[in-house]
Design a protein around this nucleic acid. Structure first.
Lengths: 205, 205, 205, 205
DNA sequence: GATGAATGAGCCTTCATTCAT
DNA sequence: AATGAATGAAGGCTCATTCAT
């Protein structure tokens, strides 16, 4: 009857995240162990190698699974502006968490094995673009949006959001609050591409 | 009379860039030397430490000095669309070069000494935002653009461009060519905010 | 519960001493490790740098603490010759151990931090001179010794001893056994400076 | 007709001495070159290796050749005290120059090739001992000195002198001027071993 | 001959990983 | 299971030595 497990992975991952986001892949396992309050050896009981730990720490539990259904169900909804704002806020919130990790992962110099590479899916930002493209297309199809190339505009839209997260992470630079940022770009976007009168009138507010 | 100089810094920097952009700060000096076709010791004759080399390799010769004047002189120009496209292309071209380096530098885990931190200026992307904000403001002032918060829209505009460079660097993902990408977002932007008839008519083309 | 400690500093220091006394500061840590029968990394777990190890290996646990009291208590003792011989033997024994280390330390080229520099005391040979000076002075005071400048004669006396250790260490040169060497110089010294009849008569033996 | 030699060995050796006596064998050839005011390459034109330069710099042009004759000719001279003082001063003067070099050489960690090892002679201090032993023996033979073991007393005598040089070199410690130091030990020595009335009477002064 | 740029072998030191309890 | 002592491979950096002029 062996001693019961008293260390759980999440506390290691949490500590690893702290260290890796601060020092990059060069962060030391000793420090991770110290912050996690466990011994160095224990880390390697849970993660065979430092790379594994790094990947686990930088990976993000995918939370976009049901976004697709949710967004598509809002296609054609009464209030276009707020449904798109809602989407934008969701994405931005997520990007602010993910972007720093992606930056670290991409620059760690470790070769990311296939199984870790977003589990066969495209990486979150690309996934977001694809989801949004489908949403845009749907709105185009019902005649509420007029854009020739939904994918490009989705890319640009996500880009604005991603850049917010990026500048925040890298330069600690924020032009305004996340929410008002999202409102601005949604307003701008709809103003350019929405054929919906309601939106136009909303703009006057 | 002594053996003439046969190594110049740029060939070292070039090799360092190759290695660092591939492997991050973990890239080995031996490999840099091999790629540069020189001995390892020579690297350290030119750069006291690996960190110094890294910073030199990731630093970007600023090329934005005279953008300000150029852009401001185009304020109110006949063809709004193309002048903004021109600006967008300039920025994107630059970002595609800079973004990978910024990512590497920010995540290297080395403490960047003040003198290297963009020589007291804000980092390029932020600088771009500021320049563009002024351009937007000028166009607002002459009544060709109608936006409430130029800074936020500049951020979003640069964001779209930056994201293009970012996805290209990190995921090798491109929705289209850089030029047509710029055209799309400029068109979209003007369509939303330009009060200029000419632009509208151009859109029909 | 963790792997028990199996390396102790003294075995490292011993090995370091062997190597450093043979090769000076240039002695390699790899060799020290090999001789100590441990891994090179372990050395640096115990001594942050090679310099630290060197200083620890060349430093000598001071053993002169209570010499002062001991010697002073023998002032005026019945047998002057043997009490001075006793002192001489003690010093010589110690010098034979210390001199080689002092030589190495002084010529290592490393800057010896204050805390290592004999802990604020003068270095052993100087300390010996001072102790002996006081002893001589005391014997002068009770009228058994007639010397004008005790410090100079202490210096010369220690010098004879130190030279024995020095020639032994550097040239492997010994004129006789340490004990008979001490006897000779003590006899000579007393013969010159002792006003005690008993000593004179001892000389005839 | 090649360009005439414009660098002479002595300026290199002088610079090397400065550096080696300060930093030990670790002293850098670059610094020696700088101090000598020549290029690094030139050093190696004159001395095949650093070790060779070191040995040349630490070697001492032997100057004892004719000491033997000189001393022996003073055997039995009118003023024993001053003739021995003269000898002592000569030796001390020489030791003060030699001892630091011997220390450095012995601790450099380089294996000194036979040809450099004092050209087959014993090292200077030992040589001094031998010379002095013969002098003492001669004085014993003519009945002016009464010592049982001249070699041991020569050793002790040289030891006192050597220690003066040693403490000066290593600790910058001097009990008095070299001259008065010599006088003291000579006086002490003669007082112990001289059977010459004149000397005794000199003591009273 | 003199120069100093270029070299590269070698060493100290770090730190991920293993191991004995 | 958990610990942290021990390991050793690997890398940054130095500096004696060579080389092209």
């Amino acid at each position: 009857m062996p001693r019961p497990v008293s260390i759980d992975r999440s506390q290691i991952i949490e500590a690893a995240r702290t260290v890796f986001l601060r020092n990059g892949f060069r962060g030391k396992t000793t420090e991770i162990a110290r912050i996690a309050g466990i011994s160095e050896g224990s880390i390697f009981k849970h993660f065979k190698t430092k790379s594994n730990l790094f990947l686990a720490a930088m990976a993000s539990e995918t939370g976009e699974e049901n976004w697709s259904a949710e967004w598509m169900s809002s296609v054609g909804s009464h209030d276009f502006q707020s449904s798109l704002e809602n989407i934008g806020n969701k994405i931005l919130q997520r990007l602010r968490m993910i972007v720093p990790r992606l930056i670290m992962a991409s620059s760690s110099g470790i070769t990311i094995p296939k199984q870790y590479q977003f589990q066969g899916c495209p990486p979150p930002p690309i996934q977001h673009i694809e989801l949004l493209t489908r949403f845009f297309q749907a709105e185009v199809d019902i005649g509420r949006l007029s854009i020739s190339n939904p994918q490009v505009h989705a890319h640009a839209f996500i880009g604005s959001l991603s850049h917010f997260a990026w500048c925040e992470a890298m330069f600690d630079y924020k032009p305004c609050t996340p929410t008002s940022y999202v409102r601005s770009i949604v307003t701008s976007f709809l103003s350019a591409h929405s054929s919906c009168k309601i939106t136009k009138s909303q703009l006057r507010k």
